[in-house]
Design a protein around this nucleic acid. Structure first.
Lengths: 193, 193
DNA sequence: CCAGTCATGTAAGATGTTACATGATTCC
DNA sequence: GGAATCATGTAACATCTTACATGACTGG
């Protein structure tokens, strides 16, 4: 259910084609919510059919080819606002990392170490990307944020930026906690073998 | 795909009926991996049909009623070990909390505050439960862990407990980070309104 | 002219959620 | 006798993953 709101949220920044949306989901939005193309295109169509987005055919290339540029409608903004104001259902996290960690005694120590090292690399890389994105939000060089700010009263800019960076602060804090945890795991393995 | 390994992992502690498994998923295992009854019972049957578990009918009550007690087979242990040794696919976290946080400017400030307060309560309560469970693992009063240890050479006990508590340390650290983040959010809201 | 990007999906299957459904047993 | 617990699901639907599929356009 969150995918649709992630899509609307993104498109409040500025209108985009499905392809652009899909690229964004591989980058900044993807940090917050991941989805593959095969979910994005159909969901955009569904949102359009429900009147939360408009799909405008714009010419592309030399021939009579077109691409669809989606924009949020007033109804879409209202639906998003309503979702934002609705109470959140408790979120069950289901992270296989904890399951593996708890039963690491069942793994070959070599493989366990390899696993933790790959986790370490994953978190390290993700941390770099998150921090870079947060910096782009803070200094307003983030393209979608910049587009969004243009359509908004300047008095509100600071507030919007504060919330966007706040979300990244949470993700960054979590990554740091996870990274430290993985490093503890490597020490634990080393101590045991 | 992880549900089945969570089930096998739990049952390596000791044999259980579907009902006991389901209760455990509402408690300690549930911290690591959540699943409702409607997933648990069919999956246990599937695992039995694949030979990873055995289902033994044991009498229950006075009449000819029976319940099924599941136990891990050698094949089940092998499959679990194999999974533990396989490289982990990158895990895409999809936490609606970050999506909401990033767009908190769209919410009514009152509702945003209520939302964050409910998040705070959720994390606080979860933290208490996680710490209590971790303590029970550390002092070996956790029933499933205790049962598991009985069937295992004492030289290995420390190692097993270390990994079980290590998993909880990760979840606890994450909860603490999330809690701090939520509190920052409340301060941010207060500063803005 | 060829590689990379832009553009848009379908289809099948796995997984997870929500709601509903039923009855025995045990303990007070 | 009644409430809580034990026991076990089905059914419908939503969501997500994985694999496959196609072709035009752009820049070097």
């Amino acid at each position: 259910m969150s995918l649709r709101y992630a899509l609307i949220a993104l498109l409040t920044g500025r209108p985009m084609t499905g392809y652009e949306v899909s690229k964004r989901f591989g980058a900044s939005v993807g940090h917050v919510w991941h989805a593959p193309d095969s979910q994005i295109y159909p969901e955009l169509r569904r949102l359009e059919s429900e009147g939360l987005l408009t799909g405008e055919d714009v010419p592309w290339g030399t021939k009579a080819r077109t691409k669809t540029r989606y924009a949020v409608t007033a109804a879409g903004e209202a639906a998003f606002r309503e979702w934002m104001n609705s109470p959140a259902s408790p979120h069950h996290s289901r992270d296989p990392a904890y399951l593996r960690a708890a039963y690491l005694d069942w793994a070959d120590p070599m493989k366990a170490r390899q696993y933790l090292l790959s986790q370490k690399q994953f978190h390290t890389e993700r941390l770099v990307v998150l921090e870079a994105t947060r910096a782009m939000l803070a200094d307003r060089t983030h393209p979608v944020l910049a587009a969004r700010l243009e359509s908004i009263d300047e008095a509100e800019h600071e507030r919007i930026i504060a919330f966007r960076t706040y979300a990244y602060d949470g993700m960054i804090a979590r990554e740091r906690a996870d990274l430290k945890w993985v490093e503890d795991g490597l020490r634990l393995l080393a101590a045991n073998d």
